[in-house]
């Protein structure tokens, strides 16, 4: 599976939701777009699923342009974009059957497919209820089930745990973990939860104000250490260097992650007043910095 995003921009009137985004996602696994509300994650997913058209640039999935051949591309994509809403007078089973039929499932396999996806998302007990009677969290589960119908190679999930209670979130993360084990599947999801990205992703991309600010792929993973206390910044450390000074804390980039114990000893013997030393998360740093 290959998703190639080239110089993609999207404007809503004067608002520029995406600014010249270029990216290549290859292979399988789970790629997460992390960003605050309004970062451009959903707009990117809407273009990928042909819900909106780009102002400029393009997305190709396995070499096929989404904008010029949406039907062919979408036959390989299962998606959940924004908070899902469904036709309120159709039951969960009917909505899954409708999606399966549109995806070309044969009538013979229909029941089996509905059972499979509803078991995976734990909505088997609610299939005969009309979707208009579903709670927010149940609609979210139904949305994921709809995305899974037909076992598509590419899953596009926009904040799949949104609106779920803590138990539901944990269950959904387990479903995502199980799904990403499938060697033939690529999952692209978005979240604004750092711990979700950290727990699930093989690759994390941070979007801010419509631009890619960080991509864990191709970035040298630094060994960052947070030291709380007072340090003489002019001290020449052998095993690391200060890259950020905050209020009462210092972030060190340790040159060799295998030499962290030596770095700690050097720190303690440098005459600094240290309250505690902890590892600093690079993702958190990138996510929170302006």
């Amino acid at each position: 599976m290959e998703v190639e995003i080239s110089s993609l921009s999207k404007n809503y009137g004067k608002i520029q939701a995406l600014k010249n985004v270029s990216l290549l996602i290859e292979g399988n696994g789970l790629v997460t777009f992390l960003g605050a509300n309004g970062a451009g994650k959903t707009t990117l997913f809407k273009i990928l699923t042909s819900i909106v058209r780009p102002s400029s640039g393009s997305i190709n999935v396995n070499g096929v342009n989404v904008d010029s051949n949406p039907r062919k591309v979408l036959s390989n994509i299962g998606s959940l974009v924004e908070e899902p809403e469904f036709y309120p007078y159709l039951t969960g089973r009917e909505l899954l059957e409708f999606t399966a039929k549109i995806r070309g499932e044969s009538s013979r396999d229909l029941k089996e497919e509905v059972e499979r996806v509803s078991r995976l998302t734990d909505i088997s007990g609610y299939l005969e209820r009309k979707s208009g009677e579903y709670s927010r969290g149940m609609k979210q589960r139904l949305g994921v089930a709809v995305a899974l119908v037909g076992n598509p190679e590419l899953l596009v999930l926009d904040e799949p745990t949104f609106g779920m209670d803590p138990k539901g979130m944990l269950e959904m993360r387990k479903v995502l973990r199980d799904m990403k084990k499938d060697k033939d599947r690529l999952i692209i999801m978005s979240t604004h939860l750092l711990e979700e990205a950290r727990a699930l992703s093989d690759r994390t991309i941070i979007l801010k104000k419509g631009e890619i600010k960080y991509d864990s792929q191709g970035t040298d993973r630094k060994s960052l250490v947070r030291v709380t206390g007072t340090i003489d910044p002019s001290h020449d450390f052998k095993y690391g260097r200060i890259i950020e000074i905050g209020e009462g804390y210092y972030i060190f980039d340790v040159f060799d992650r295998n030499k962290i114990p030596e770095f700690n000893r050097e720190l303690l013997s440098s005459g600094s007043s240290i309250m505690y030393i902890s590892s600093a998360d690079e993702l958190e740093k990138e996510f929170t910095k302006d």
Binding site: T49, I51, K72, S79, P84, E85
Partner: peptide, 14 residues
């Protein structure tokens, strides 16, 4: 308005 378009527009159907 009811956002059902997010479901149907993303299906492989003209």
């Amino acid at each position: 308005e009811n956002r059902t378009a997010f479901h149907i527009f993303a299906l492989p159907v003209d």
